[in-house]
Amino acid sequence: MTRRQKKLIKTILLYIVLFILAFLLLFPLLWGISASLRSDNELFSYVMPFSWHTLIPVEWTFQSYIDLFAKYNFLKPVMNTLFVTAVSIIIGCFLNSIAAFAFAMFDFPLKNFLFGLVLLSFMIPFEAIALPLYQVVDSMHLVDTYQGLILPSLANGLVMFLFVQFFRDIPAELLDAARVDGAGVGKVFVTILMPLSKPIFITAGLMFFMNQWNSYLWPLLIARSKNIRTIQIALGFFSTEHKTNWSALYAGSMFSAMIPLCLFLPLQKYFVQGITSSGIKG
């Protein structure tokens, strides 16, 4: 066997392994989509014995998606989640990036101590503080408000850390030159730093998006009333102790899973770049 043939066989084997793994990872999602496209009376009828129709619907229908919005008013939680997510992304990126700008570009007394606090905060996982955090938010009378959903997630130690690492690699001469030309700090930030930092802004935005879009525990504690309920909480109401509304639950779940997918596919390139440049280096 020549070297080239050997290499070809290796590549083919690699593809086979990748395809099998991809199928296993995708299966639950594909199966969920398939279930969401079944009619109500077909939902459980083809499970046993195993056949093609266990996996693929006999009759394809979008009825459960139509019902989801027409009958169950799913639009309200979707809009709530979009609002909370959008506000978190915009304010979160702004606050963390200007703080990171200060940490990366200037020397000032107490800098190392304060940055140490930032690092400490991102080692404290949210689950560990969720319960006392509830008391804090409750004492500020923010339970059941949008502020209560948004405020605790805005300052994010990990995001700030990623920003700092990225800004550090930007040559200071570039910024200094602009300052000499008379541009203020704000102008330097907006016209020079921001365009150079596209991958890291996208990475931070995606992190905020995923945090808010998929967050479950926090809205479960905070969003009590119907009009500020988020998607993940609304999904929980399709299933009660007595009865589960399967078709609405499937359609709602798949809808909530599709949106991040559509965002992630085109942006994944920047996401890898953003993390790669973060200084979590080998």
Binding site: I98, F101, F106, L117
Partner: peptide, 19 residues
């Protein structure tokens, strides 16, 4: 610099370190 880090650090303190 303190002005720039103030909002983020204030939020970190209230919602992460204080709990």
């Amino acid at each position: 610099p303190y002005l720039l880090i103030l909002p983020a650090l204030l939020l970190l303190f209230v919602f992460k370190l204080y709990p």
